[in-house]
Amino acid sequence: MSPVDAVALLLAIPVAFTLGVLYWFMVRKLTARFQWRRGPLLLVYRDLSGTLGSSRLLQPLYDILKLWKKEVVVPPSARRTLFKASPYIAAIFAGTAILFLPAPYGCLLSGFSYSLVVASYLLVGAMLFIVLGAASSSSPWGVIGARREAELFLAYEMAFIVSIFTAAYMYRSLSIWEISINQLKSLPGFLANPFAAILLFLAALGKLHLKPFDIPEAEQEIIAGPYTEYSGKLLALLYITKLLILYSLATLIIYLFTPLALYCSTPLGATLHIILSLAVIALLSLLHAANPRYRIDQALSWYAKTAAAFGLAAVLMAASLKLMGVL
């Protein structure tokens, strides 16, 4: 590994975190605008800028910093070790997944031949530890939240796996970087197989707990679900995990279905990376704002029906393209 690669790897997580903050700001801002609200201000009004600063672009970061300084309260009946360790492990999993995804400035480890498999398993691992931490919190809300998360997980993970492996099958590679490059030789993924792209998008809604799938965090029913008993630094870590997962999913969607790798390491590539991610996030926010929440059984049957239909269509489409020799 050359020193340049080492520096690129070291930079990956800070860059991903910064972009995650930006993306989360976008989710909040767009949701607010769709809802006839202001949301966090990009330009603070002049009479408020004395106390608020000139912009609240970094609002998600301020939230995390605030939590970081707060006291951590562990419920006396919780399984202490698992409860306290889970957010750290989840954040480490999400952080490691970042290394296997392309960054705006380079391919990092995504050129490695099984990077798609490794990255998706690391993301699964992060979710798993969020569930474990909640289940060990001994709070009834946490336990119900964990249970809902686990049920929903089974549903959206199916959609996720079908989608990414359709992409892998179409472009004959398990490396995210190669999948993106191979699209140049034939058709870009979102044109060749829109069903697979939509499927990945739907799975992202579930993974990020956006409406209509924010069932594990339904505050009106179960307070904060898995996060109910978490406070201070541990909660901040869970937020960081969430930001990193948002970044990873946006990156995964754009690289698996566009030949973005072509422009890598150029200013144009970096700009396109961010713009396309923001477009994905704008769509996510629109769905988040336009929908109420499903009940858990409705969500499961929705994934079982709609997502299965899209999955079948994606696989058939990929197979027929192969047969016709387009890919």
């Binding site: 809802q35 006839w36 409406k211 109420p292 929440r293």
Partner: peptide, 16 residues
């Protein structure tokens, strides 16, 4: 009611 079914947008509109 919108808030309870998780429909924040409905909540904002009806309150406006």
């Amino acid at each position: 009611f919108s808030d309870v079914i998780g429909f924040k947008t409905g909540f904002m509109y009806s309150w406006s």
